[in-house]
Amino acid sequence: LVRYRTISKIPQITLNFVDLKGDPFLASPTSDREIIAPKIKERTHNVTEKVTQVLSLGADVLPEYKLQAPRIHRWTILHYSPFKAVWDWLILLLVIYTAVFTPYSAAFLLKETEEGPPATECGYACQPLAVVDLIVDIMFIVDILINFRTTYVNANEEVVSHPGRIAVHYFKGWFLIDMVAAIPFDLLIFGSGSEELIGLLKTARLLRLVRVARKLDRYSEYGAAVLFLLMCTFALIAHWLACIWYAIGNMEQPHMDSRIGWLHNLGDQIGKPYNSSGLGGPSIKDKYVTALYFTFSSLTSVGFGNVSPNTNSEKIFSICVMLIGSLMYASIFGNVSAIIQRLYSGTARYHTQMLRVREFIRFHQIPNPLRQRLEEYFQHAWSYTNGIDMNAVLKGFPECLQADICLHLNRSLLQHCKPFRGATKGCLRALAMKFKTTHAPPGDTLVHAGDLLTALYFISRGSIEILRGDVVVAILGKNDIFGEPLNLYARPGKSNGDVRALTYCDLHKIHR
């Protein structure tokens, strides 16, 4: 019993810090008490220290592992850092350059016999395009090294910054494609005289377009951006097909006994025919423009016929181009109408809503002055909100995010209106959640004399007048207030005048 009563005193000691020596009952000389009392004092002292730490809000209350900052290894790049964003855009520009100039170089340097010394005699450094290609190869190699040090988000939505895990993730992902696209074939085969082989191998750079397509997928929600990307894709495919079309004609031209190829026909049409040795002929500019003209006309199913396939190889390629053109029509131009419709969806919704308003007016036989006010209010409210119901949009977000959005939407009023000066951010967040926005066209009466005042109004834009009878008592403008002081009276009061809008007004109100 003594032991039980001794232990039962522990909660009292913990909360009230009572010393055991003052209790005459606990001072009985028993061996059990002498053993338990020192333990009680020690526990009391420890609990006292913990309570003191909690009340003082000291940093040592938290466990040590929670006080440590997340460790980022040296030379690790955050995937959302500004440097990584700028670097990704730079790589994107280099990939676009590669997609345009690599097929052009591979096709127009394929057994090209233009006048001038061969590239091997001039030297590697004197070729501007080769120098640019070398810079692109170096940048792609540097990009691989950067990807080995860039964080990523795993399946659990955690940012991984450990170098080993980053390397394994990159090896399992895009490393092989990036490595093949970054191989400097110019340096590996330079001086061997195989410019045709170098041009063909350099087309491996186009593998990076797969990554670019995935990154550009984030802009699919913007109709104008999608339309622009589709047109660029169409032009890029036409450019690639033009390079292939020229390569076919250029390879067949020296081996044909009869002059029936499209390059021969082009030379005869523009007065620059090929001679018996295969030299001469149109310039590279004429060849490229004509090839691009043929691919565009074939892809769009126009086909004027002034550039036509004559050999079997050219006919087979033309059939493939027609098939590609039909697929592009289905996948690209078939979506253009939907994209344009999405661009004008706001206008369509406006006309639909206006039609419903006019049908309501016609069905209920609203008189002319009231009908005009109804239409003007709808037009003004639509121009202010673009038909978007803010309350319906915010309803799907958590309250903390709703408060931040409301604070942002009402920031101008909260910053410049005098009653809100000096208020804490928590108070402003709470008030912003209570605001209701209303609009009024010129001549609209917001409050009639004798109406119950259940709200306090803040003028965000425009001006109003307060009338008693036919006498203008006051004219209020931006950041002015009218209405009933909230919670100042037990019952809502009545208006002693009319409140009429002089201009288009936007008002925020808080109800009782």
Rank of each mutant, 00 (worst) to 15 (best):
P118Q: 15
S161W: 06
S192N: 13
G271I: 01
T233Y: 04
A423I: 10
A291L: 01
R373N: 04
S331D: 01
P398F: 01
F175E: 01
E359M: 03
A338L: 13
R259W: 01
S258T: 11
V447P: 02
T98R: 03
L370D: 01
A238F: 03
W75F: 10
A432N: 01
L279W: 07
D404H: 01
C232T: 05
Y293S: 01
G173Q: 08
D268F: 09
M433L: 10
L92W: 07
L110T: 15
R74M: 05
I284S: 01
D257W: 01
L230V: 08
I166T: 04
F296M: 13
V100C: 01
L401T: 03
S192H: 14
I340P: 01
T150W: 01
A130D: 01
Q379Y: 07
A125W: 15
V212L: 13
W240K: 01
N275A: 01
V226I: 12
I284M: 11
V180E: 01
E359Q: 10
I135G: 03
A99P: 01
H439L: 06
K202D: 01
V357F: 15
K434R: 11
L200T: 05
H380P: 01
E376R: 13
G396E: 13
Y80R: 05
Y65L: 07
L94P: 07
A403M: 05
T300E: 01
K66L: 12
N306F: 01
L323Q: 01
A242E: 01
K172W: 04
S337A: 10
Q353S: 09
A130V: 05
S194M: 13
L176S: 11
S301N: 04
I388Y: 15
R205I: 01
G116Y: 07
G305V: 01
F140T: 01
K285V: 14
T300K: 01
L90K: 01
Y293P: 01
Q365L: 03
A291Y: 01
G305Q: 03
T113Q: 12
W382V: 03
V168M: 11
P163E: 01
I77M: 06
V336W: 03
F175R: 01
S283W: 01
A348M: 13
Q353R: 11
H162D: 12
I189W: 13
